[in-house]
Write a protein that binds this DNA or RNA. Structure first.
Lengths: 243, 243
DNA sequence: TGTATAAGGTTGTATATACATTATAGTCGC
DNA sequence: GCGACTATAATGTATATACAACCTTATACA
């Protein structure tokens, strides 16, 4: 069942495994092209392709005349795309874990109903999760989910799948709204994130629509010292530069 | 001035130009590797690299046995669009004003050179502006501009035109990078924005590229109590689950 | 007419080779 | 001890070649 993988992909996997497992820490030197040639019995062009692609993908830094090194993984999350924080953390070669603080069905108060653009909501799910990178809390996820859109939400095992991953798989996302604010943490946030009262936080408030309804409303709180939000993208090649 | 560009980069530029100008519309076929070999007098491996990289970068789609085609432009928009803060404030019916704190030509230190992805920068402009809404500071703009991209930058009257507006008009923006962080204000920031030391701020760090070069690097600092970043946009039906 | 086969073009991968560029370490001469 | 030069190693680019995989089209044949 193992597809025949190209040689350059095998070399990439080998290097990624060593990075992800922590065997090669950030800053560590990775084998030179010629060393890969010998150990994998490949040509230098193939080794070059593997290393070059890993550099483009942000895992390696290469310095002519010196060598190739494991890049420091920037702790930042994408602004534009909906990404699964677990994948993101594992992509950096770190260990993802989570702690579910609360998980329940709730009745909507007026403020929530307004956010969901609904006069009366049948059912609403609530979940509060702390996401951890190498055991350190990096995001507090405070999420409400429209039961009409994802009725099986609470049945999921959120230790294995993050809410984001489940919702992305279960419902199409038609529209997104983001608001970003800076704020000092509340007492509860200090406790859950393990930070002091003077550590500013990013509060990313996100609403997503699915088939015309608000599917979920989430407030993601990031301690400033541990995370930054990031986005990079090409502007439309055909000139629709946003104003 | 014009560095000797690698052959594969010239081929990429040629193709990108044709896409950007609209000469090659989405879905159109681009020259095959062998056609590029003949027209550019290069080897097929070089043509292959150019096309492969443009595919990875999202501009082209390649189908084995068939050919290479211009990809449909992805229907996504930036979370943080490039907007002129003066327009924004006036759109709210408020009065816009600004105060230019500093305006000079500077030499790049290594950190700046790295941000500009340049080994040695000929000239760099710096400007520090406080943007005010009804006389109240709402944004501190700390911007560096690549003189090679916008040589006339310092000649502008930034009381009449904001740097953003000028740069948007003067240079095409090919690519944008945003990083958002929360931070407590430095002493200078407190003074310029008229806020206390405990008021958290949003720091929006933006880099923009123009014709392959970093055109400008700006840090926009917003007092949390006076501003939030907002975006709402439709997604392209395909879920954007990472990896 | 319909189908199987062959031919040719296109992308994908892999190799061996060559030369250029860059950084480091060492050596020689002074 | 210090500077100039050299050797070495690493990455960066480019080429020529080869074969595999895939698709389309044309052709041969039943």
């Amino acid at each position: 069942m193992t597809e025949a993988q190209p040689l350059y992909a095998r070399v990439k996997d080998h290097i990624l495994q060593n990075i992800r497992s922590g065997a090669w820490a950030p800053g560590a030197r990775v084998p030179s092209e010629n060393e890969l040639v010998e150990s994998f019995r490949i040509s230098r062009m193939t080794a070059n392709r593997a290393l070059r692609e890993l550099m483009v993908e942000g895992f390696l830094a290469r310095v002519p005349g010196v060598g190739t090194f494991v890049k420091e993984a920037p702790a930042r999350s994408s602004l534009v795309e909906l990404r699964n924080i677990a994948d993101e953390i594992e992509q950096r070669g770190h260990r993802y874990s989570s702690r579910i603080v609360a998980k329940s069905e709730v009745t909507a108060n007026p403020a929530l109903a307004e956010e969901f653009e609904a006069r009366a909501l049948d059912r609403l799910f609530h979940i509060l999760i702390v996401h951890e990178e190498n055991g350190v809390p990096v995001q507090l996820e405070d999420r409400y989910v429209n039961a009409a859109v994802a009725p099986d939400f609470l049945k999921q095992d959120f230790v294995k799948t993050t809410p984001t991953a489940y919702l992305l798989a279960a419902t199409p996302v038609d529209e997104l709204e983001h608001t970003v604010e800076a704020a000092l943490p509340t007492f509860d946030q200090q406790r859950l994130l393990g930070i002091g009262p003077l550590e500013p936080c990013l509060a990313l408030h996100r609403r997503s629509w699915s088939r015309g309804q608000v599917a979920t409303v989430a407030t993601l709180t990031y301690p400033a010292s541990r995370y930054a939000l990031y986005s990079r993208h090409r502007t439309n090649a055909r000139g629709t530069l946003s104003q």
